[in-house]
Every structure is written in structure tokens, then in C-alpha cells.
């Protein structure tokens, strides 16, 4: 239920234009750069979390910070794809705005997966952490595969 609600909000945001940012004189380029910065922060958290999940770095509690960073970033994703922001260095595919509901669903998946990862990180249970992290990764991959320019 909660997920349906979130993805409905996200779909609305994605199909709305830049007006969301207009009060701050945000240009389409700014919106694209901001999105890219949010993505970079996600990438940093996931890179660090993966090393802990793989057992290469010991988890002395700091995994939780990365998990929360991922969850916060995932929540923000709903608002960083305003219509008209596919400019500059943006690697977004037009499909995002052509199929806002499918895209919102993909973001809702990530939000669910990152929330579950926070829960796993809080529990400290290695197996749960590994499985939850894997789901976060699958969610990133699924979305990039479908909605991002092929690299």
C-alpha cells in the first residue's frame, strides 16, 4: 500500500516539469548536475557498503551509515528526474519520461530494497546484510539496464 502511494507520487513528480525547482531558479542543467551528484553519493555508499558486505572491511557499525545514506538517496531519487532535465551530461534515457509509471515502480523497488538494507544493517546479521545488499544491487542494475544510456 505504502509502496503504491510512493510510486504514485514519484510518477507525478517525474511527469511534472521543472516547476518543482523554479523557485530557486534551477536551470535544466542544474537539475541534471544535481541528479548526477546524488547518483555519485549513492555510488560512494554502495561501493563502501559492498566492501563490508564482501567481508573485505570489518563492520564495526559504520555499515549502518552507508545503508542510511543509500536509503536517503533512494528517497530523493523521486524528485531528481523532473521533465526537461535530460540535458548536458545527463545519461538518462527518454523512456524515463515516456513511461513515468514504470520508472516510478523501479524507484519504489530501490526504496524498498534500501529500507530493507537499513534493517539488515541494524541487525548486524552477516547473512541478512549480504542478501539485502544484493537486492539493492539488483535494483540499481535493473534500472540502469533499462533507463540509462548504455555505457
Amino acid at each position: 500500500m505504502q509502496r503504491k502511494f510512493f510510486s504514485a507520487i514519484a510518477a507525478l513528480t517525474i511527469s511534472s516539469t521543472l516547476s518543482l525547482y523554479a523557485f530557486a531558479d534551477t536551470t535544466p542543467e542544474d537539475a541534471a548536475d544535481y541528479r548526477s551528484a546524488v547518483m555519485t553519493s549513492l555510488r560512494g555508499h554502495i561501493g563502501a557498503a559492498s566492501m563490508i558486505a564482501r567481508g573485505l572491511v570489518e563492520n564495526d557499525g559504520h555499515l549502518l551509515g552507508h545503508a542510511q545514506g543509500l536509503a536517503n538517496g533512494a528517497n530523493e531519487l523521486s524528485r531528481v528526474f523532473p521533465k526537461g532535465s535530460n540535458v548536458g551530461e545527463s545519461e538518462a534515457l527518454p523512456l524515463i519520461w515516456e513511461e513515468p509509471e514504470a520508472f516510478a515502480e523501479a524507484i519504489a523497488n530501490l526504496q524498498e530494497a534500501t529500507a530493507a538494507f537499513v534493517t539488515a544493517a541494524e541487525s548486524g546479521d552477516e547473512e541478512a546484510i549480504g542478501a539485502a545488499f544484493r537486492n539493492v544491487g539488483m535494483s540499481c542494475r535493473g534500472c540502469h539496464d533499462r533507463f540509462r544510456v548504455q555505457q
Partner: peptide, 11 residues
């Protein structure tokens, strides 16, 4: 899982 070492995911 498709993660690049910098935390990005291949598509």
C-alpha cells in the same frame, strides 16, 4: 551482481 569497483552498476 554487476557492480563496478567504484559502486556504479553496469547497464
Amino acid at each position: 551482481i554487476g557492480m563496478l569497483p567504484d559502486g556504479d552498476f553496469t547497464g
